[in-house]
Computed example of a mutant assay.
Amino acid sequence: MEHTPASFEVPELEKILAKKKKRYVGYEEGMALYSMRKISFRKLAQEAHALLRIKKMAIVDLDILDDYLEQHRSNN
């Protein structure tokens, strides 16, 4: 019997990374991508001016949000 190293796979990771390629996401997708709760994610999107409202729907522009995070990250 040949010993092969165990591989570690995260089945949801590829789905999440595939979603990251999207420019606009709703709250639920954004919360999953950034591992945040809804209120925190919404506040962050508002601070970054990445929140777009279309009729009764809100979406977040991930390009703007990522730029905001890069500009305001802490170098601690």
Rank of each mutant, 00 (worst) to 15 (best):
R73H: 08
K43S: 12
E2W: 04
A6Y: 10
L62K: 00
M31F: 04
S35P: 01
E2M: 08
I59Y: 10
R23K: 03
I39R: 15
Y34K: 07
A18C: 01
E2C: 05
E2Y: 10
M1F: 11
V60I: 14
V25S: 03
I16T: 01
S40A: 15
Y24P: 00
G26E: 10
Y34E: 07
I54G: 09
K55N: 15
A32K: 11
Y68K: 03
K55P: 00
M36D: 01
V60A: 03
D61Y: 03
A18N: 06
R73I: 02
A18F: 00
M57T: 15
L44K: 11
Y24Q: 00
L51C: 04
H3S: 12
R37Q: 11
E12K: 08
K19G: 07
H49M: 12
D66N: 11
A58W: 06
H3F: 14
K20E: 11
Y68A: 05
V25L: 07
Y34N: 06
Q71I: 12
V25M: 05
I64M: 06
V60M: 07
K22D: 13
H72N: 15
E12D: 08
K15N: 07
L62E: 00
V25I: 13
A45K: 05
D66H: 11
A18S: 10
Y24M: 03
K22I: 02
E12R: 09
L62N: 02
L51N: 02
M57G: 02
H49I: 09
I54N: 15
L13A: 15
M1G: 15
I39T: 14
R42M: 08
